[in-house]
Structure formats: C-alpha cells, structure tokens
Design a protein around this nucleic acid. Structure first.
Lengths: 340, 340
DNA sequence: GTGAAAGCGCTAACAA
DNA sequence: TTGTTAGCGCTTTCAC
C-alpha cells in the first residue's frame, strides 16, 4: 500500500466536522454520540456538517481512546455446512436483537494449527469485548490463556475447561434418542457410521452414545469410524449390511445422504432392505427425502450463547460461575427407518 | 502453555514487552514485525518476552498509528441460505489463499433500511482497506458515496453503478438455460414461479429470462410473482397446473422444494403429472431428490471477487476501470423434469 | 542498531 | 454548555 501523501477521501475526521460546525472536537464528539451536555441547535449544526462531509467515525480510534470495545468477536467454522450457516445466522440475529455488534472471522480448511491461532489473534487484537467460539477446531488449551482477559462462550460444542462458558448441543442425548428409536423399530444388528474422534467430536459423541444405547438394548453394533469426507466408511457400512445388519445409523445427515446414494447405487432399497438414520435435521428438503434424523436445537443454542455473553459483559465476569448449558433437539422420524 | 501465577491478566502492551526485554518501544515494534533494523539476538529476546507475557498486538492502535488497514470488510447476507453460506465459505478460503484478512458483518432480517447502513458504517468505521458486498439488500446508492474512498466489489449480484466492481452470477443466462431445457422437453404451457423484483432481484432476473425464452420458444407462460417465503405463490402455481400447465419453473431451489411438497400433498406426481425445475444447485441431497436445477458458479464468483479486490488494493485503484465479470453455471438435468 | 519524540483520530475528565 | 488538556497503544521519521 502506498505511503502517506495522497489524500484518501475517507479521511474526514471529527476535527473537520468540528471545524465546519464551528465547535471544538469535544463538543462534536458529544453531540454525535448524543451523550453529555450540548445545545440542541448546536447538535443539529454538527450532525448536519457530519452528514454533509460524509463523516464516518473511526471506530479504531474511538475505541482506543475510550478504552473499551462494543463488539463481540465470533469465531466461526466453515459456513458451507448448513448447520453452521444456520448457527451463524441465528447468532447474528440474536446479537442484533440484544444490541450487540458481532464481527466474525472464520477458520480455513486446516482443521487445527496456526490458522486457528491466527484468527483468534485477529479478534483479540481488535480488543473485542467478548468471544463466541463456534468451531470445534480450536482447543480449550488455546482458548484458556485468554479466558481471564475476555469472556469466552463456546457455542455448539461442549467444553470442559474452567472459565469457558458454553451453550451446546447435547450430542450424547441425541445419539441416545436416535438409538432408542432404532431399537424400538426392532433392529438388533446395527451399523454405526461416524467420523473419528479427531475428525468430528460431535459425531464421535453421538456415535458413542448410539453404540452404548444399542448395546444396552441388546443389539449388536458394528462401529465404523471414518474420515471427514461423507463417503468415507460407506463401503464398510454396506458390507456390514450385506452381512446382515438391518440398520445404518449415521452420525450426521451428510453421511446419511452418502449412505443412501451408495445403497441406491447398490440396488438396495430404503427402508425395504435397510433402515438409515442421520443427525442434524437442518437440510432443506430433508422432509422430502423422508430422512430419519434429529433436528439439533440451533436456535436455542444461539440464543443461549448470546444471552450468556451479554450477561458476562454486564456483570462482574470474574465472579460469575462458569455457565454450561446443554440443549436437546427433537427426533424427526422419517420414512428411511422402518420396523425390521 | 502452562499456567504461571504472574501472568498479568489485563492488557499487555508493547511497552511491557519492551521493558521486559530492556529495549525501547520502537525497537520492540520493529523486532516484532520483523521489519527495519535490529540485532537478531535482540529480536530473540523481545519475541521471547512477548510470548512469555502473552502479548497480543492491539490492532486498532497499530492500524491507527500506521494509517492503513490490512483487512478487507465483507458484508454478508443471512447465511442460513446455503447458497450464501457456501459463497461466504469460498470467499473466505480465497481470501486466505491470497493472504487477505477478512472481517465479516452480516445483515439482519430487515431486508433494507437502517440495519444495512449501520453494518456498512461498522465496516467503514474500521477503516477497512476494501469492501466486498455479498448481499443484495444494500443498494448502489448507499454504496456509491464510498466508492472513491475504498474499493468496492459486489459478489453475486450484478451492479450497474460506476466504480463498483462485480463478480456475479449471470442470472439471465441461467434462466435461459433452464427454459431451453424445459422447451427441449416439449413443454408449451409453463408456470414460472418467482420472488417479486423487490424481494429477490436474482430470482426476478432468472424468471424474466425464463419467461422471455419460453415465449420465444412458442410456449405460453403463467408468471407468478410471489413473496419471500418459499410457499408464497405455490397455490397459484398448482391452480395453473390443474388448468393444464405441464411444467413449473421455479426461480430457486427453495421454491422448487415447496412446490414439490405441495404437489405431493395434492397427490400429483413429479414428473408424471408435471415437471418441476429450480435454480441454485447448492442443496446437499439435491441429487437424491433428482432436482432439475442449475448449479450456480459459487466458486468462480468468489475467486473472481477476491482476485479483483486484491488487484484494486495493489494497483492505483482510481485508474482501474470498473471490473464486471458475469459467470455462468451448469445445468443439472434431474428426474423432476421429463418430456411432456 | 537503537531510542526519543511526534502524532494517528478519538474520548474523557476537568476547567471555563 | 463548551473548550482544554491529556492521553489510549502503536508506528515511524530522524537523530544518536
């Protein structure tokens, strides 16, 4: 970028406005913010001048001088996943409703590593007033050092670290609900298809709970722990089906779709030959496909996360005990799972 | 990172780091940035001190002092729509690939109005180096005053205003491609279901092109201009079908889903009784539903938008002619549209 | 190679 | 009611 010298038009400062209105900078500040004391007609003049000049307050300078920040930072995971996109949207709505300004940075493809820390630093560097973390990619260890500088709320994923608050999906319960449903349909030989623990912690939690519940219910379980791609592990799942399994429980709707594609390609019918379930319930059109799934409580999590943040910002954060709120979604029985 | 008792919980400034390393602030700045002159071993000491103290540079102060900003602002529309979620994701990826930092603000539910301007000001207030606008909700008139202060690239939607660059979907062409497909299947009585012009400009463009192409092809067209909700106008579309129309062309996949639900509820089969098409092609699972649609070129638009921004940032922006790049997607013939 | 000093644009006491 | 005076944390000449 070029050095000093040229004159970007955006350099309308409050001094310009003050000069144009014939007052001091301090007065201009007050009038523009509508705080403190000033004559109404002075304000009019100042506001008019500001508008005429196209003045936009320099937030950096303002917050630097004021020593505080009005915005909350949001760390988001890749929004190409509709579940995250929706969470993003709802967080934003809720923040807006509560008068909080959100600024977002997202994490690139590399699940962990420098990228994450970089994004975190970008936000912290802005001296955000609080941090909402909606990505599993960043670890508690990376977050914790900053927990006493700024309130941190994790949204979506559970968190065990002290001082980091959460509003999260009750993934184990989701797994249980789905498994109970499958059991109630009479299935006793079930494949559980999930991302590995380090690939998707949420899927891991769901799958573990599914397996446990199924086993408790007297079913035999084939656990397929796969990679991040939805198609990973699908072949193994199909093998198990050919081997006699009557149901495939997927830890996410993405995997469920992949399984259904594969089954279709293999000439197997759903739910005739095999029942299939997923989890998330966010996909538009899931109803038309008849997906058996569990709708995760995105709205509740978003609302709770923002509410908690607001609480932390207004109260003496240090004295607030760590907030941990799990939310349970609702089972969506579809036509992809039927009695055995 | 292990915890230490002496960690200063509150803001560590560069002065602290400098003091701890026994140098001046100026030296600390240089060493930390790796620019300018400094002794390697001095740098080591400074970096070590910074790490030990948990120093995070205050971006606001840094950019204020330096008089420039390294980040590009992104204005985004509600990401609960997967098409926008994906665009968001790809813009982010591309920016990262090119070493641009993106900071995002999104627009709440109110399609136009103060909210939009507020978001715009938030970004401008941060003195972002550039602006990528990925929401139709903000008008050229609102953008234009700032076009000579900061480079602006609109992503996704076409733009006619001078000085505002674009990388956008060629919606009219998309409409044409879909309509040609429907014509080629032999349909001559077609319903076109779209959001009204002020509700979704993209849908409007597509629908207009569809209608024109259909009429040119000798078909008779019933144009249903509906509200924002996908279910709006569906009843009218169904009436037209009962009246003899053999195809319903929807301006978006969301509407297509709504139509298919309604048809199913009405006991009509697709494509037996009526063919249906949509547009977007982003929905996961669209293939399983057999949706006939058009996959919009999200990746290309994102890449072009970011590339253009980078160009504008590095070149003398004022002398760069307005860049306008339309991108055409690919037709996805599905099983929802069949010969008449 | 390093430090001293002068701000960036704004806000917040405290005077006037 | 308004202006004056200090900075916020950092960068950046320009001497040393």
């Amino acid at each position: 970028m070029s050095s000093t010298g040229d004159r970007p038009a955006l350099r309308v400062t409050i001094s310009d406005v003050a000069a144009a209105a014939g007052v001091s900078r301090a007065t201009a500040t007050r009038a523009l913010k509508g705080e403190g004391r000033f004559a109404p007609e002075t304000q009019e003049r100042i506001v008019a001048a500001a508008e005429r000049l196209g003045y936009v307050r320099n937030t950096m300078a303002a917050e630097l001088a004021a020593g505080r920040t009005g915005t909350v930072g949001l760390m988001l995971r890749d929004a190409s996943n509709p579940a995250y996109g929706l969470l993003f949207s709802r967080l934003q709505d809720e923040a807006h409703r509560r008068g909080l300004d959100l600024v977002t940075v997202t994490i690139g493809a590399d699940v962990q590593g420098a990228e994450q820390v970089n994004a975190l630093h970008r936000l912290l560097g802005m001296r955000v007033a609080g941090l909402i973390v909606a990505t599993g990619g960043i670890t508690a260890a990376q977050l914790e050092p900053f927990a006493d500088q700024v309130p941190i709320v994790r949204a979506g994923r559970v968190e065990t670290a002290e001082r980091i608050h959460t509003a999260h999906y009750d993934d184990p319960e989701h797994g249980r609900l789905l498994a109970s449903h499958v059991l109630s349909l009479g299935h006793r030989r079930v494949v559980v298809l999930s991302g590995a623990e380090d690939v998707s912690f949420a899927e891991h939690l769901r799958a573990s709970a599914m397996s446990a519940t199924l086993v408790d219910g007297g079913a035999s379980v084939t656990l397929v722990s796969a990679g991040a791609a939805p198609t990973d592990g699908v072949d193994e799942a199909l093998d198990a089906v050919r081997d006699g399994a009557t149901a495939v429980m997927c830890a996410s709707d993405y995997r469920q779709l992949a399984v259904m594609r594969a089954l279709r390609a293999a000439g197997l019918s759903v739910p005739g030959d095999v029942s299939v379930t997923g989890c998330d319930g966010i996909l538009p059109g899931a109803d038309l496909l008849g997906l058996t799934t569990l709708r995760i409580p995105v709205e509740a999590v978003a609302a709770a996360a923002v509410e908690t943040m607001q609480l932390l910002l207004s109260s003496d954060a240090d004295s607030t005990p760590t907030v941990r709120q799990p939310f349970v979604g609702t089972l969506v029985p579809g036509s992809t799972a039927a009695p055995v």
